[in-house]
Amino acid sequence: MIRLKTVTADKLIFKKKFSMIEQFAIKDFLFKWVGRPAEGIDDFLPLEYTESVFAKMEAKQVTALHINKDEHFRYATISEDNQIVIGVVDSDKELIHKIISLDEVLIGKHL
């Protein structure tokens, strides 16, 4: 099970733009992170690249992807420090950012 570290947005600086490679890397990471769904990431979790305030791969619709029971996935982004950051909405409708440890990504603990 992957452990996500919760942080406040003021502790992070997000990239303003993503290259096509970064966009595909986030989609590939999410595909693996959610368990390689047979229908593919685009059908399971449709994402749209946006640059409002900062660059992110955002869920096109309110998603049923739950994280830690009462949190809903909203988007994935990359910090200026190249950390993968997941934005989720909690049960109180507050936006929370969770950092995925690079060590967990590199050694495959998220799979």
Rank of each mutant, 00 (worst) to 15 (best):
M1P: 12
I2W: 06
L4Q: 07
T6F: 15
T6A: 12
T6N: 15
V7R: 12
V7F: 13
T8M: 15
A9E: 14
D10C: 09
D10P: 00
K11G: 01
K11T: 00
K11Q: 14
L12F: 05
I13L: 12
I13E: 15
F14M: 13
K15D: 14
K16I: 06
K17P: 05
K17A: 11
F18C: 01
F18S: 00
S19L: 03
M20I: 10
M20C: 13
I21T: 09
I21H: 08
I21V: 06
I21M: 10
E22F: 06
F24G: 08
I26R: 02
I26F: 06
K27D: 05
D28Q: 13
D28A: 09
F29Y: 01
F29H: 02
K32H: 08
W33D: 00
W33P: 04
P37H: 03
A38K: 15
E39S: 04
G40H: 10
D42T: 14
L45V: 01
L45G: 00
Y49D: 01
Y49M: 00
T50L: 11
F54C: 03
F54L: 07
A55G: 09
A55P: 12
A55K: 04
A55S: 05
K56R: 09
K56L: 12
K56A: 14
M57P: 05
M57Y: 10
M57W: 04
E58S: 04
K60W: 07
K60Y: 03
K60A: 14
V62Q: 11
V62S: 03
T63W: 13
T63A: 04
A64W: 12
A64L: 14
A64T: 07
L65P: 05
L65N: 03
H66D: 13
H66L: 06
N68V: 09
D70W: 11
D70H: 10
E71K: 08
H72R: 10
F73G: 00
R74W: 06
R74Q: 04
Y75N: 02
A76Y: 03
A76W: 05
T77F: 06
T77L: 15
I78N: 09
I78V: 00
E80A: 15
E80Y: 15
Q83H: 15
Q83W: 14
Q83P: 07
V85T: 00
G87Y: 11
V88A: 02
V89D: 10
S91G: 07
S91D: 08
S91L: 15
D92C: 09
K93G: 13
K93M: 14
E94D: 14
E94I: 00
E94G: 07
L95Q: 11
H97W: 12
H97T: 01
K98V: 12
K98N: 10
K98A: 09
K98Q: 04
I99T: 01
I99C: 06
I99D: 08
I99Q: 04
I100E: 07
I100L: 08
I100A: 03
L102R: 13
D103R: 08
E104L: 10
L106T: 06
I107F: 04
K109D: 12
H110L: 13
L111E: 08
